[in-house]
């Protein structure tokens, strides 16, 4: 006779998992100490995270006594951190919104100051075997925009395959910038994917023969192809490159911003760091990371 035996623990595990999930939602936001002394806290754009980490690395050899803490969870989080005072410097891949500016003035009594520290070209990635090598802005709009007429690669000289579009989550800075630059005030076509980060957009294009996606130029690798983009039918298609972004020939490029609350004291650790970023050392890092120096 086997006694009826129900493993309570398994049920409890399930229940605890659900409780845990809920707790994570509840604890989603938590604050941090503001940077004091010789530490500088930086938050913001995930596009700028890799250049931020490279700056952090390079700055160690310049000022080993200054600790930089760099986070990159999205441009909005950088402004949030400036407003609540948990960061000294915000990275952003878009210009500050009026609502954010007002909140900063309200919280600190100082206007936010904008510094352009480089440029980022948004590349349109495709599978490396895709025979289509260039598109015009108008064609891109027909592919990506709600109501656009192009949904098959054959319409732009490619194979007969449905175009698989992969983008970013609707609150990412890259999403907003690509939308503004290519779609104007239109929405993305239904059925456009949202990948978990720029890296995964590029990975999707590298593994999907009929894929297309947008991400920063710095994510280019041998495994993925990208398109030259022409402003209109009469102009030459331009391949994304440092030179073409700097000369503003490549049409899908944006500035990389650093925001501070008021002008920083040039003697303070954060002020010294910002000056270094805008000078030769920091700008060398910008180009090493596949971005474009601001001058």
């Amino acid at each position: 006779m086997v006694a009826p035996n129900f493993k309570q623990p398994m049920k409890e595990i399930v229940r605890n998992t659900m409780i845990g999930t809920g707790l994570c939602l509840v604890l989603a936001s938590c604050g941090r100490d503001s940077g004091t002394g010789t530490s500088v806290t930086i938050a913001g754009s995930d596009t700028m995270l890799q250049v931020g980490l490279a700056w952090q690395d390079a700055y160690k050899s310049v000022r080993s006594d200054v600790t930089l803490s760099v986070e990159g969870q999205g441009s909005s989080t950088g402004f949030k951190a400036l407003i609540n005072g948990s960061a000294d410097i915000a990275h952003s891949s878009r210009a500050i919104k009026d609502s954010e500016r007002e909140k900063i003035v309200e919280a600190h009594g100082k206007e936010p100051v904008e510094h352009i520290v480089g440029f980022d070209g948004i590349a349109v990635y495709v599978h490396p075997d895709n025979p289509v090598k260039s598109l015009t802005i108008a064609q891109l709009k027909e592919i990506w925009a709600d109501g656009g007429s192009i949904s098959n690669w054959s319409a732009v000289g490619g194979p007969d395959a449905e175009i698989q579009r992969m983008g970013r989550s609707n609150s990412s800075g890259t999403y907003g910038f690509f939308q503004k630059a290519i779609l104007g005030s239109a929405e993305f076509k239904p059925g456009t994917g949202a990948a978990n980060g720029s890296e995964n957009v590029v990975n999707f294009c590298a593994t999907t023969p009929s894929g297309i996606g947008y991400s920063g130029m710095s994510y280019k690798s041998d495994k993925v192809g990208w398109l030259s983009v022409a402003k209109d039918e009469s102009s030459e298609p331009v391949e994304p490159s440092i030179a073409s972004v700097q000369s503003k020939e490549y049409p899908i490029a944006r500035p990389l911003y650093i925001y501070t609350v008021g002008e920083l004291d040039p003697e303070s650790p954060a002020g010294e760091y910002l000056a270094w970023v805008k000078a030769e050392g920091g700008q060398a890092v910008v180009s090493e990371q596949g971005f474009v120096p601001f001058k």
């Binding site: 999205g74 441009s75 909005s76 949030k80 989550s169 609707n170 609150s171 990412s172 949202a194 978990n196």
Partner: peptide, 11 residues
Amino acid sequence: TIASEMKDTAH
């Protein structure tokens, strides 16, 4: 959807 959009929305 919650996981991907929560981090970038204003509280």
